[in-house]
């Protein structure tokens, strides 16, 4: 299925959608968004790209196999949980580090929560794309 409109539009949109998905992932803790929603946006971006340019091209654009991606994501989530244990607290306790805070400003929040959400993002992207690519290739 090749459509000039789709492939032209996709070329412009895919990159924007991926940036948007990361934006959604990062803002998720305070505004609507988060790993799950961001992941879905990224999936749609890659699915559209695969639709217009072929699955092989989409796989190349992803660099790693989707299954690897979802397992890395699961690893991130578990690792985020283990950090709390290193401090003697229960599994999955959130740990926060505020970098460069001044008065009135807490600074850049780095947290295991963010790592966990990135894990969710990667699992969603990897697992769904794995199925979509396999289905596309079968047909």
């Amino acid at each position: 299925m090749t459509s000039l409109i789709l492939s032209t539009a996709t070329r412009l949109i895919t990159g924007l959608m991926l940036v948007f998905s990361v934006f959604l992932l990062l803002r998720g803790h305070n505004e609507p968004g988060g790993g799950f929603i961001g992941g879905l946006v990224a999936v749609i971006a890659f699915a559209l790209y695969g639709k217009s340019r072929g699955t092989a091209e989409a796989r190349r654009a992803l660099y790693v196999h989707p299954n690897v991606l979802s397992l890395i994501g699961l690893g991130c989530a578990v690792a985020a949980g283990v950090v709390g244990m290193l401090f003697g607290e229960p599994f999955l306790t959130g740990k926060w580090l505020f970098v460069g805070g001044g008065d009135g400003d807490k600074g850049w929040p780095l947290s295991t929560i963010l790592l966990f959400d990135i894990g969710v993002y990667l699992v969603v992207v990897g697992a769904v794309l794995s199925v979509i690519f396999a289905m596309e290739e079968e047909i």
Binding site: H29, G34, G35, P66, G73, F116, G126
Partner: peptide, 29 residues
């Protein structure tokens, strides 16, 4: 440290549930 309650519930308060869910998603994939 989060204002989006839905997300805070997902990734912090009930993170264990989410961990289970993403494990299921990864395995189902």
């Amino acid at each position: 440290h989060g204002r989006n309650i839905v997300n805070v519930i997902l990734v912090d308060f009930r993170a264990l549930d989410t961990l289970g869910e993403i494990a299921v998603i990864a395995l189902a994939g």
